[in-house]
């Protein structure tokens, strides 16, 4: 329940210095992770674990870079990487 206002906490992440406290992200979020945020203040992320990582807050923010998502480790994408010359040629 501790409000996290600064970079480094769980998603989403707000950069206080860049935030203009317009509250657009608070209005956009369908999971209401910003519940309890006060008008004209940097929004607080009260329920980070309820984030869907849908990007609505980022899209709604008028200040580029003031809010971003950090995708939690359990959601990491698993992939294979080939060295350039080893990229298989599937053309048949």
């Amino acid at each position: 329940m501790e409000a996290s206002k600064e970079v480094g906490e769980m998603p989403p992440v707000i950069v206080s210095k860049k935030c203009e406290c317009c509250g657009q992200c608070v209005e956009a979020c369908q999971c209401d992770v910003f519940f309890g945020s006060k008008k004209a203040e940097v929004p607080q992320i009260t329920y980070p674990e309820e984030c869907w990582h849908c990007n609505a807050c980022v899209e709604a923010c008028p200040m580029k870079g003031a809010i971003k998502l950090r995708i939690p480790l359990p959601m990491m994408i698993l992939f294979k990487r080939f060295a350039k010359k080893q990229i298989p040629d599937y053309t048949d």
Partner: peptide, 13 residues
Amino acid sequence: EKANTLYSGSGGL
């Protein structure tokens, strides 16, 4: 609407 119609639901984005 439980959230905000501008971004809500499975088609929100």
